[in-house]
Write a protein that binds this DNA or RNA. Structure first.
Length: 768
DNA sequence: CTATGCACTTAGGAAGAGTACT
DNA sequence: AGTACTCTTCCTAAGTGCATAG
């Protein structure tokens, strides 16, 4: 259907997008978005020329006029129909068909299966067997343990797999686990503690993906944790480190001094040169000053933080120069903290927490042109903290002499700790690590939704192409926006509060100023040029040829609008998502990104991998496929500071290797000649040795060259984001299995932990 | 319908740890 | 051992999308 949906052609070589584009935050600013009252814009537009929308227009005459206009703009609808007779692939797609996720859920209705599964889930011996008074004690109330086995007698129904697992566990622990627990024991020394920790080693490879999921919307039945780790208290700087105002030494009050150090620490950063940053900082700093200080310090320019700055630099140098022993000590302490606070018990399993440390105070660093950059991020105290855990768990204790804001027991959410942040007033959370069941299930589900989209994407594409001709403006806009989201993998583009954040957009929030239309450009017809700042103020620049109908529609949408008017004035993400929901259960705009990313990877891997290449070459192919996705999703990075140099180094290595190779070849030649003359065993052997040497060097050279290519192509493209968030890991795992490549070459340790489910379940024939 | 609150995913950069090279 | 560079982990901002209130 969708004639132009091979991202590989128009995206993969879209490298040009990057050439001139990286981080134009400042250059971009020059355009000076007036873009003042954005929310009002939409209103204005509606009344200005929005009457084509039947729903909200009471003025019929006007409506008809608008219809007329559209016909003219567009060429008559009928005529177009005749000309193109777009074949409509009827919906042979089977929406409900074998979706493993759904099947699994359906199975759960079956009592027997469920029982078995829950048994399999049965509490791991070591957690269970802990003494009652242990910190990580097991849950006590049966009623809260639905997911757990009901009864010991059931143990015979344990699925085999899991039983073996437990057996293994009992016999052998992972060595690293043991090391860890010993360390902790040594550190603390107390017998009880040691005992505790020894029992506490994490379960090995719990295969949550072989178990039932909750179907009632609850996220857990039991949750116990130790609460957050607070930022260390402020340590005043030594009195010999001075702050000067207007050239004169000034001793600051502790409160003012702390905030001053935040600024001093950033002195080398370009943030501190920006007006908004300085203005915001100064305003918030003043609030922390005493009355006298406030009276005296009236101009940030007269503040001299250099001694402070030097002091912190020296400190970090000193940290680097610490002896091994000292470093080890710190490491051990961190490990202890991690063991104590970095895990929780959720439904009988010890799971890693992602961010158990509370964000320390400091100056807000927004990205791009953020109106709030430089504001003071205040220190979070226990009374700001909401704790979430189960009723029957041992609740975390607030630090002595303090209280939590609240302790609640909401098992419909996944977070353990939350607080409200003072810059935007939004809520921050402490949640689990990506390797946890709760995150993994969700991730898996995300890819299953994307795979369901695969089954009906043709129908959806046919439909939106049809909708380009709709009589209703809002439907046309919706259809064009959806086309962009699908074809270009744009983000949905929620509207944002004006003045609260940097001015960035996504698809639905594109403004007229963000696109340019070229009826003809560089030999192509109907070219649209996109140029806007997206998430994190990363510039999206792309020139794409589109269907004539899309082009005409865009012209229509832009008619009589100012540059800072919304392109899709009758559309927003919730309208769009409502529509998508009707097309497929669970479909939202972001699913297209996941789908297109994953399908592109799969397709590119097929195209790029050649059977006869060696492993490094295959990995280059993988990286290239990955890169195609990163380009599609516009995942950019700042070129590493040392890029040029490291490239040169690599080139030097390659040259050296080349020399080495020609030397080796020469030697081989002479030894051959030698062997011809002498005709003895010894010289023959020498020839063999030389041959092998040449081969080895050739291989090394090849490896280096591949590395160089890979690095060069990767200069300003970030592969990590797509790998972590958009690419169904089963595609990669299947590819590894198919070509006999160790997964370690593709995924590092963290990634393997996150994708354990995929590594365990995907076979070499997995199809996304 | 719009606005707001909330929960959760996605994102790039900084800092730290590890490794290779001299 | 010290230094240079790279890879990993941490950090937290900035999105998406749903629910609910007005």
């Amino acid at each position: 259907m969708s004639g132009d949906h091979s991202h590989s052609e128009n995206q993969v070589d879209g490298g040009s997008r990057f050439n001139d584009s990286h981080k134009h935050k400042d250059k971009y600013k020059e355009k000076e978005h007036k873009h003042k009252d954005h929310k009002k814009d939409k209103e204005r537009e509606k009344s200005k020329h929005g009457n084509s929308d039947y729903k909200d227009s009471s003025d019929k005459k006007h409506r008809d006029k608008e219809k007329e206009k559209m016909k003219h703009k567009d060429g008559s609808t009928d005529k177009y129909k005749d000309k193109h007779k777009e074949k409509r692939k009827e919906e042979k797609v089977n929406y409900h068909a074998n979706n493993s996720w759904q099947n699994a859920q359906m199975k759960s209705l079956d009592g027997k299966v469920k029982k078995e599964k829950e048994n399999g889930f049965a509490s791991p011996p070591h957690v269970k067997s802990e003494p009652e008074d242990d910190f990580y004690h097991s849950p006590r109330h049966e009623k809260s343990l639905k997911r757990e086995r009901d009864d010991d007698n059931d143990s015979e129904f344990k699925p085999k797999k899991i039983k073996t697992e437990n057996d293994k566990k009992a016999k052998k622990r992972k060595p690293e686990e043991d090391v860890k627990s010993k360390k902790t024991k040594n550190k603390k020394g107390e017998v009880t503690d040691g005992k505790k920790k020894a029992k506490k080693e994490p379960e090995e490879k719990w295969k949550w993906w072989e178990e039932e999921r909750y179907t009632d919307g609850s996220k857990w039945k039991f949750l116990e944790h130790k609460g957050p780790v607070f930022a260390p208290p402020y340590e005043p700087i030594p009195s010999n480190v001075k702050f000067f105002y207007d050239g004169k030494h000034m001793k600051l009050s502790p409160g003012a001094e702390e905030v001053a150090t935040f600024f001093a620490k950033m002195l080398d950063h370009e943030y501190t040169t920006k007006d908004i940053f300085r203005k915001n900082f100064f305003k918030d700093w003043k609030k922390e000053m005493t009355a006298e200080e406030r009276a005296k310090i009236t101009d940030l320019k007269k503040c001299d933080f250099t001694e402070m700055s030097e002091y912190f630099k020296a400190q970090s140098e000193a940290r680097k120069a610490m002896t091994k022993d000292e470093k080890l000590k710190i490491k051990a302490e961190n490990e202890r903290l991690l063991q104590e606070y970095g895990f929780c018990i959720m439904d009988n399993h010890r799971e890693r927490i992602a961010n158990f440390r509370i964000e320390p105070p400091g100056l807000f660093r927004g990205r791009g042109d953020h109106p709030k950059m430089g504001m003071l991020k205040r220190r979070i105290r226990p009374q700001d903290i909401i704790i979430n855990c189960s009723k029957d768990s041992k609740h975390p204790e607030p630090p002595p002499g303090t209280k939590w804001k609240e302790v609640r027991h909401d098992n419909k959410v996944t977070w353990l700790v939350s607080w409200t942040e003072n810059i935007q007033g939004s809520i921050k959370y402490i949640m689990l690590n990506p390797s946890s069941r709760i995150k993994g299930e969700k991730d898996w589900q995300k890819y299953e939704t994307a795979r369901r989209l695969k089954k009906c994407v043709d129908r959806i594409r046919t439909q939106y192409r049809e909708d380009w001709k709709s009589k209703e403006m809002r439907i046309r806009q919706r259809a064009v926006a959806l086309y962009f989201i699908d074809k270009l993998a744009l983000r949905a583009g929620n509207e944002k509060e004006e003045g609260e954040t940097a001015d960035t957009v996504g698809c639905c929030s594109l403004r007229v100023e963000h696109i340019k239309l070229y009826p003809e450009n560089e030999g192509l017809e109907y070219v649209v040029e996109f140029d806007f700042l997206g998430k994190d103020s990363i510039r999206y620049y792309n020139k794409v040829p589109v269907e004539k109908r899309v082009f005409k529609n865009l012209q229509l949408f832009m008619e009589n609008k100012e540059p800072d008017d919304d392109l899709f004035d009758r559309l927003n993400t919730s309208v769009l998502n409502k529509h998508l929901q009707e097309l497929m259960d669970g479909l939202t705009a972001k699913v297209f990104r996941t789908y297109n990313a994953s399908i592109t990877l799969q397709q590119q891997l097929k195209v790029l991998t050649s059977a006869d290449e060696n492993i490094p070459a295959k990995i280059l192919s993988y990286n290239r496929a990955n890169r195609a996705v990163a380009i599609l999703c516009n995942h950019q990075r700042a070129p590493p500071k040392t890029f040029e140099k490291s490239m040169q180094n690599l080139q030097a290595k390659i040259d050296a290797k080349r020399d080495q190779l020609s030397d080796a070849k020469r030697e081989l030649k002479s030894s051959k000649a030698d062997a011809k003359v002498r005709r003895d065993e010894k010289s023959k052997k020498a020839v063999e040795t030389k041959k092998k040497a040449v081969q080895r060097i050739e291989e090394q050279l090849m490896k280096l060259e591949v590395q160089a290519t890979d690095r060069e192509e990767n200069k300003q493209i970030a592969l990590g984001t797509s790998k972590l968030n958009y690419l169904d890991p089963r595609i990669s795992v299947a590819w590894c299995k198919k070509w006999g490549i160790p997964v370690e070459k593709i995924y590092n340790k963290t990634q393997r932990e996150k994708f354990a489910w995929a590594i365990d379940m995907a076979d070499d024939d997995f199809e996304f």
